[in-house]
């Protein structure tokens, strides 16, 4: 289902989704040629982040995690600055202080990014507390993985949000449905007694919405409802967006196992390879979004390829910018400990 938005807006979301996909693919390629440390990519979750954050207004705040790249790109943070930060260059948004795990940009509504699982749930709750008590008509969005529900901080936070009817949206991106990773020695996935994550929320009385996180229209509708509730004094909402784990995210270090995405697979099934057929034919949320867009006749396939070519060129340029940028002066490390 497409988001209930104008054709132009839907195509804007498509562009953002392609930006995220190509950004992450270029990053994985870059990691193949030089040591850039451990990082996490957002491939497969684009159709949660893009429509969800599309609805935010200036002044709203979002708190994200180690898997933050897609969230920042969805809010328009320039790819060049993000690559620069990931490479530790002075042209990065934080001048090289934070790197991939902590990408943030106050200008785009990301005040700080915690890579401690569950680290930001209280912070997002606190931002909502501030908005409410200072009388600001703003919403705080807490973006986190299913893993954060295993930490106590989340339970403490939602209790506060529920009691105080805070304008916060807990958007849980559940990418661990298969939950086999840990046993297979792969990337860890959730270890929760609750089978249905929203069962954890019910006792707090916070409304829950469970959606297919690969369905852009469902994400749009859920976020719309949650934002309306928050802005009208109705308090918090918990959304569980279920996504499919991209095969390249199975190993501890991401790998381009499904190759660089060929968006033409969306309309030409003869291009779908037998390897990872299920991923390309059914699970890849961006390909699914494109199929829905084409079915509505919002754009011609050639124009999608042209959009992709433009985005891909931009990403390559952004990587070049980052590579050509200087490292910060080492002594700058001593600055900004305190305000």
């Amino acid at each position: 289902m497409l988001p209930k938005l104008s054709g132009e807006q839907v195509l804007e979301q498509l562009r953002l989704a392609i930006v995220i996909r190509r950004f992450e693919e270029e990053l994985i390629k870059l990691a193949g040629s030089r040591d850039i440390g451990h990082f996490h990519v957002y491939i497969g979750q684009e159709m949660t982040g893009v429509p969800a954050l599309y609805l935010l207004e200036r002044g709203d705040l979002s708190f994200t995690t180690h898997r933050n790249h897609g969230h920042l790109l969805a809010r328009g943070v320039p790819a060049s600055q993000m690559y620069a930060e990931i490479l530790g260059k002075e042209t990065g948004m934080m001048g090289g202080r934070g790197g991939t795990l902590h990408l943030c940009s106050m200008e785009h509504g990301f005040p700080t990014t915690s890579s401690a699982v569950g680290g930001a749930t209280p912070l997002a709750t606190g931002a909502a507390f501030g908005f409410q008590r200072l009388g600001q008509d703003r919403v705080s969005v807490c973006l986190f993985g299913d893993g954060a529900l295993e930490e106590g901080s989340w339970h403490e936070s939602i209790n506060i949000a529920a009691m105080e009817k805070l304008p916060v949206i807990y958007l849980c991106e559940n990418n661990s449905l298969e939950a086999l990773g840990q046993k297979a020695g792969e990337y860890p996935s959730s270890t929760l007694a609750a089978v249905d994550l929203i069962d954890l929320v019910t006792p707090f009385g916070v409304p829950t919405i469970q959606i297919d996180g690969c369905d852009a229209g469902a994400v749009h509708a859920a976020m719309g409802e949650a934002l309306h509730r928050a802005r009208s004094g109705g308090g918090a909402t918990f959304i569980e967006a279920r996504t499919v784990r991209w095969p390249g995210n199975r190993p501890i270090w991401p790998e381009l196992s499904t190759g660089e995405t060929n968006f033409a697979m969306a309309w030409d099934s003869s291009l779908v390879p037998t390897e990872y057929r299920e991923w390309h034919a059914e699970q890849d949320a961006v390909l699914r979004f494109i199929r829905e867009i084409l079915a509505e006749g919002l754009i011609e396939p050639e124009a999608i390829l042209a959009m992709d070519a433009e985005v891909s060129a931009e990403m390559k340029e952004a990587v070049e910018f980052a590579l050509a940028s200087n490292y910060p002066p080492a002594a700058a490390a001593m600055e900004k400990v305190l305000a």
Partner: peptide
Amino acid sequence: EDVPIPFSPPMEEYV
């Protein structure tokens, strides 16, 4: 040094 550990390699080495 008495600073949070920075990410960037030259800064990290500095502290």
